[in-house]
Amino acid sequence: MRVSVDEDKCCGAGQCVLIAPEVFDQREDDGIVVLLDAEPPAEHHAAVRESADVCPAAAITLDESR
């Protein structure tokens, strides 16, 4: 799995950080998503998928072909 984020779309809701803190964080100043691990290990895939599903701005993109 390869994860990418679109910072321009991100609204800073923070759901991704709550669901998958090993993969996502937020900038202190504006709450915009910070991607910590673009290719997370398999044990985090379910949480990353959930994060992408609940993102209100659809700022998280997953490539599952990897």
Rank of each mutant, 00 (worst) to 15 (best):
L62V: 07
F24W: 03
I60V: 05
G12M: 08
V33C: 12
P56W: 05
Q26P: 08
G14A: 03
Q26I: 05
L36M: 09
A58E: 06
D6W: 01
I32S: 09
G31E: 03
I32D: 12
G14F: 03
V33D: 03
M1E: 15
E50A: 15
L36E: 02
A46V: 08
P40M: 00
V34G: 09
R27Q: 15
H44G: 01
C11G: 10
E22D: 14
A52K: 14
C55E: 07
E7M: 01
L18F: 12
C11N: 06
V48A: 11
V54G: 04
E50R: 04
E28L: 13
D29G: 07
E50W: 08
A20P: 04
V54T: 14
A42D: 13
E28N: 07
D63P: 00
A13V: 03
C10L: 06
A46T: 13
V33K: 12
A38K: 12
C55P: 02
A20I: 05
A20C: 11
L62W: 07
A59C: 13
V3M: 11
P41A: 14
A13R: 06
C55S: 06
V23F: 10
H44Y: 14
D6M: 01
D6R: 01
I19L: 15
D6S: 07
M1I: 10
C10R: 04
V3Q: 04
I32N: 04
R66V: 15
L18C: 04
P21M: 14
D53M: 15
I19T: 13
P56N: 06
S4Q: 11
A47D: 14
V17N: 13
A13D: 15
P40G: 05
C11Q: 10
E39M: 04
L62A: 05
A47V: 02
A57E: 12
D37C: 10
S4G: 03
A47R: 15
E43P: 01
A42I: 06
D30E: 06
D29E: 07
C16Y: 03
P21V: 11
G31N: 06
D30V: 02
A52T: 08
V34A: 11
D63K: 00
V5Y: 02
K9W: 04
C16N: 04
E50Y: 05
L35C: 08
G12R: 00
A52M: 08
V48Q: 05
H44D: 04
F24R: 00
L35W: 07
E28F: 13
V17E: 14
L35V: 10
A46I: 06
E50V: 13
C11R: 04
R49L: 00
D25V: 01
D25S: 06
E22V: 06
L62D: 14
V48F: 02
P40A: 01
A47F: 03
C16S: 08
P40L: 00
C16K: 05
D29S: 15
A20S: 10
